[in-house]
Design a protein around this nucleic acid. Structure first.
Lengths: 230, 230
DNA sequence: CCAAAAGTGTTCGAACTACACCCATGT
DNA sequence: ACATGGGTGTAGTTCGAACACTTTTGG
């Protein structure tokens, strides 16, 4: 039992909300679910939960992510704290938003049902409770910026991916078309991908070669002052 | 009195910590003070305070900033939430860090004494309590990035400043020397400064012309798709 | 044989880097 | 007259933007 140093101060509920992003079919998707308790039970909401006494705020976010994706150690980053007095219609809650990037393929569909959760295209967002839309907006700004400086994108693709896929991903993130030749030129010059012999024939008759992201190479380049940039 | 929706959840203390930055004599400075209560009373600490029931987290940060600088509406931005279980040695406290940029000149020195506060060169930081050094580190990363995309720097200079001053500021932020001619070429091409007739003769015999930042011009350029960049 | 997507180089202009000398003035 | 910091332009290079045709193959 810790000493009661701050006796005269007031305490608040602290929650985490998770912006879980995936990529499929040329579009970014987000995992939403129907809220399971009052107020606004049944409304669309981000995945979230209250921080518990024994866990850090980061750990709370990891826990919520693991619970509703079935995957540990997802790529995850804090977006920020949301602390308006009346942001939660129930009681006062300060919420810390986190975003996570997941590979939509290796996804446990049982869990989706269990949580009444659904992947939704970002272009097709329903009304969301509280300030959840703001959180998503802030996340997308952040993602746009960071995806240009760090190889985050690979967290959204299967381990084996094709260059057309990768390009579509960046186009989805930036909400802008990219030039195919320039895109590939830049990638090749970075030399962080490994080409496989295998082809993906789902997308076209000709088929596109699979690539994998070579993290060792990337880390080595970083040490030499290389800077990833898109 | 709001309904008790979240009765079974646990509450936490929520605090704000402010990284108050100024610029003087070629260096970034930070406002630190000696903590006024236990635990670690008398140790060096960021300016901070607990969030109160009637105010948002942002408002708490504004309040703390106004209290210890005597200035309202400072430039201020959230850095992030710090939520490790044992980050505060007293009790469990989740803290939201904010940084603020102030003009060190128009500064109320009485308030400094009142709060036992002192401007400290960033190159000369003492030991700080809890995770405050981490907060400062995160702030400086953020400042490096944002100062290159937004005209934040002007918040750290007097309204009238000279180009050598401005360059020294950027050199302090980036911790790297800049080329004088390239720096000025870029500035002139952006066309967001206004040259005054007056000179500052403190820095040299010849004197350097004063400039002011023209916010109207800057805003107009933004509308036309202009992008500030250093 | 044709539709549909994959793959491949070059040219042009803009932006960044490096770099050295003269100017104004207080002492 | 000299020391000190303020002010100015050019040339070379790199980087990003624009752009069109050939290849493969399933139907």
């Amino acid at each position: 039992m810790p000493a009661a140093f701050y006796q005269k101060e007031v305490k608040f509920f602290v929650a985490v909300d998770c912006i879980i992003l995936g990529f499929n079919n040329k579009e970014l998707n987000i995992l939403l679910h129907k809220r399971t308790f009052e107020p606004l039970k049944g409304e669309w909401s981000l995945m979230g939960g209250f921080v518990r006494p024994g866990e850090s705020v980061n750990e709370a976010a990891s826990r919520v992510l693991a619970e509703c994706t079935g995957i540990d150690n997802l790529f995850m980053e804090q977006v920020g704290a949301y602390g308006d007095v009346t942001r939660d219609l129930g009681e006062r809650v300060v919420s810390i938003a986190y975003y996570a990037l997941v590979k939509m393929n290796d996804f446990n569909t049982d869990l989706l049902e269990q949580y009444d959760a659904k992947w939704t295209k970002l272009s097709d967002l329903p009304e969301l409770i509280f300030d959840h839309k703001q959180m998503i907006h802030d996340t997308l700004s952040r993602l746009k910026r960071k995806a240009g400086n760090r190889p985050l994108g690979f967290n959204l693709l299967p381990d084996k991916f094709t260059l057309p896929q990768l390009q579509m991903l960046y186009e989805a993130i930036y909400q802008a078309p990219l030039d195919k030749r320039n895109f590939r030129k830049k990638l090749h010059s970075m030399d962080i991908l490994e080409k496989l012999d295998e082809k993906d024939r789902k997308g076209s008759k000709r088929g596109a070669f699979y690539y994998i992201f070579n993290k060792e190479k990337y880390d080595k380049l970083l040490e030499d002052g290389f800077y990833f940039s898109f």
